[in-house]
Simulated assay, not measured.
Amino acid sequence: MTSPLARIESHPHEAKRLIGINYDQFLALVVLAEQRHIEKQAELEKNKVRIIAKGGGRKAEISPKEGVCLCLVYLRQKPIFEILGLLFDISKTKANDAFNYWVDILREILPASQIEEVESNSQKYQELQRMLSEYELIIDSAEQAVARPVDYQEQKKYYSGKKKMHTLKNQFIILPNGEDIVDVCVGMLGKMSDINLFRDTRNKFLPSQKFLGDKAYIGDDAITTPHKKRKNTEISEFQKQENKQLSSRRIAVEHMICRVKIFRVASDRFRLARHRYNQVIMAVCGLVRLRINRLFSVTIST
């Protein structure tokens, strides 16, 4: 059986279909991931009480390059871990462990949004806020199915009346024309309304910041929304044209959400432990930013 890594090395043009990013992006990602892996191992070594000499013990069954590829295959294709282990010639338990280890590393090296890139630096954060205030940012949310909780009270928290299933909700705020992800908020309860979720995260932006949203956001003065038809009345032709123009601008956020859902772990029902949800979906958002070339031009140079 040909491994996914061998396949994309012999057929680089197939990389995006198999792992979600192109081959050059994959190679750049491996370099950064391996650097972070070495740093983590050095940190562990400092605190380790050795019983045997360094270099002893069982050797790693997969290389860092294979580990990154394994992680990307799971995020893009979402096979069961038995199959993932077969693809990389390891057990399902080691496939699971490898995925969890490398997805944490991807999460550390791939900022999920512009705000996450600069939030640790107050000066850069303020500069970004001022820059963003010049745009009308586009906002929307998406829901993802999760397993129904056993406890009835927990079921009520996760139940989405809109989707008629138990879900987690993610909010995306992007630049006009879908140029980049400005902010992403993931793992909210499915029953939470879009407008309340927005109001909970509104403080990340300047008070003057303007947004563009769909009818779910009607009622907030900061968000431009479509005209809504009232009961027993029709909207005018002029209002219909305005709605059409607004939709043509707002479609960019739908396209961005579609890019996230290219990774099946973010579109199908979430099978992993629920406490892993935020980590995994934020890692996917970082990969999407890498996929649209909004990330490594900055990251690699630093």
Results as ranks from 00 to 15, higher is better:
M1G: 14
I8W: 04
H13G: 02
G20N: 06
Y23P: 03
D24C: 07
F26Q: 01
L29W: 06
V30G: 05
V30T: 13
H37N: 08
I38E: 09
N47C: 06
I52D: 00
I52G: 04
K54P: 00
K54V: 14
G56S: 15
K59I: 13
A60Q: 09
S63N: 08
P64G: 12
K65I: 07
G67E: 00
C71H: 06
L72P: 01
L72V: 06
Y74L: 01
F81H: 12
E82F: 15
L87W: 10
F88Q: 04
F88T: 06
I90L: 10
K94F: 14
A95E: 05
N96S: 13
D97M: 07
F99I: 05
F99W: 05
Y101F: 14
E117M: 15
N121K: 14
K124H: 12
S141P: 00
A147D: 07
P149A: 13
V150S: 09
Y152C: 03
Y158F: 13
Y159D: 00
Y159Q: 06
Y159T: 08
Y159G: 04
K163V: 10
M165Q: 12
N170A: 12
F172N: 00
I174Y: 03
L175E: 09
N177H: 12
G178I: 07
E179C: 08
I181K: 01
D183A: 13
V186I: 08
V186K: 02
V186E: 06
G187R: 14
S193A: 14
D194N: 10
L197C: 11
R202T: 07
K204A: 11
L212M: 12
K215F: 09
D220G: 10
D220W: 09
I223G: 02
T224Q: 09
K231S: 11
T233F: 12
T233G: 03
T233P: 03
E234A: 15
Q239F: 08
R249P: 03
R249F: 05
R249Q: 13
R250H: 14
A252Q: 04
V253E: 04
E254C: 08
M256R: 06
I257K: 03
I257R: 05
R264K: 15
R264C: 06
S267F: 03
A273T: 04
Q279T: 12
V280E: 00
G286M: 07
V288H: 01
V288N: 01
R291K: 15
I292M: 13
R294W: 03
L295R: 12
T299Q: 08
